[in-house]
Design a protein around this nucleic acid. Structure first.
Lengths: 215, 215
DNA sequence: ATCGGAATTTGACAGTGTCAAGATTGGCTG
DNA sequence: CAGCCAATCTTGACACTGTCAAATTCCGAT
């Protein structure tokens, strides 16, 4: 093929591209598409592997298109984390509403669920509870709000557990909620971050944690 | 002052700079200077605020000078973290060698020390236990080695505590070490990352954690 | 039909880590 | 003393990042 032919093809391609739906100016719901793509990219590759430019490429849109829906990268991440917290909240309430089990048993299940969720969705857990979001002045007000809500639920569950007699009644509910979440969060982090390298005894770790927290 | 004078000054400054020790080709111990400067920069500003270029500027050396002593940024960070772990190890062994206190009391002191260290040296703690270092294949072999050593010490202390009767004897020492460290690490992380915003009741949290872990 | 404003793009800038190739130096050997 | 070697450090370059300002394109109301 001659070079002239190449040039002609190049000339005819450029204008053609504008009529292809790929690079059109209006999309169905770009905002949602961005969120979905972001979620995908985070799930495979983690928060740090996400760049707004790759995201834009993936959605088939220009680099800065996302800035119309999210003030900056941080707000986008906060939006995703918020979504995560809502689902998180649902899952937990579902576990504790299961009347077919004893309260103490539900709490043990909750612990195992927490751990398996954190490990199976490590990248997403890292987004929700990681430094990228919470650093300093990073967290959106609405993110802080939903996180606060989740923690309030946590306190309620702890208080309930104390009344039901499987959590130590002597401790302050708030402190107990903080420490028990701390325990789960700490284990999750140590495993996710690869500081604990043995992932084959997680159930035993959960049991040990449960034994310490419950009585 | 005339512009001509400025130009003359500019011309006389540039060649002069090469004879100043600032930009000379050989330094006393550039490696150590780099490490020191890195530590300073991490302490004020955190891991993410560290860039090799700013670091080079600060030491008064060209952008890529550090690459002669550290394969990449990650290795530099691992070196710093390693240093941190050694001091960490020293501090802990000092606490547990204090014979003037009862074993159980020492453990409570250890918990408080852990927490205050983590919060007062938040950026450094974040380096040592953070994702930046441990991610995947990130941690240097020597870093992994010293971290492993520290954790082995931890297990020993736990086993000792079980024998001395202030830690639950029924639990497997390894699991107990994992979970107890998890508790402290989790609390530290939640506080450092700003997920727990109330820093005014840390002692109570420590006490609550101690009550759960000890018996 | 036209004009406004929303949606999207292009261009640009400063910053990053890192590689390859060149410049400089101190110390050793002849 | 000359000369070269290897360690040390610099310059230039590349690809990548987030984000701003200024176009551009487009849909819907007037």
């Amino acid at each position: 093929m001659s070079r002239l032919a190449d040039k002609i093809q190049a000339m005819s391609q450029k204008p053609a591209r504008k009529e292809v739906a790929d690079k059109s100016y209006h999309h169905d719901d770009l905002r949602q598409k961005l969120i979905d793509a972001t979620r995908d990219m985070i799930r495979s590759g983690g928060v740090e592997a996400l760049s707004l430019r790759k995201l834009a490429d993936r959605v088939g849109v220009s680099r800065t298109a996302a800035y119309h829906y999210f003030r900056d990268k941080n707000v986008l991440l906060c939006t995703l984390a918020e979504e995560g917290f809502r689902q998180w909240q649902d899952q937990i309430s579902r576990i504790f509403q299961d009347e077919s089990r004893l309260p103490a048993e539900r709490y043990r299940i909750y612990i195992r669920w927490y751990m398996s969720y954190a490990l199976e969705n490590a990248e997403y857990y890292d987004l929700m509870f990681g430094r990228s979001i919470w650093k300093q002045k990073c967290a959106t007000e609405s993110l802080k709000a939903v996180a606060y809500e989740v923690f309030q639920d946590q306190i309620k569950l702890i208080r309930q557990g104390q009344k039901q007699g499987f959590l130590p009644a002597g401790e302050d509910s708030l402190r107990l909620a903080q420490v028990s979440w701390g325990t789960l969060h700490g284990l999750a982090r140590l495993l996710i971050d690869g500081i604990y390298t043995d992932n084959s005894h997680i159930d035993e770790m959960c049991d040990c944690a449960a034994n310490l927290l419950m009585r």
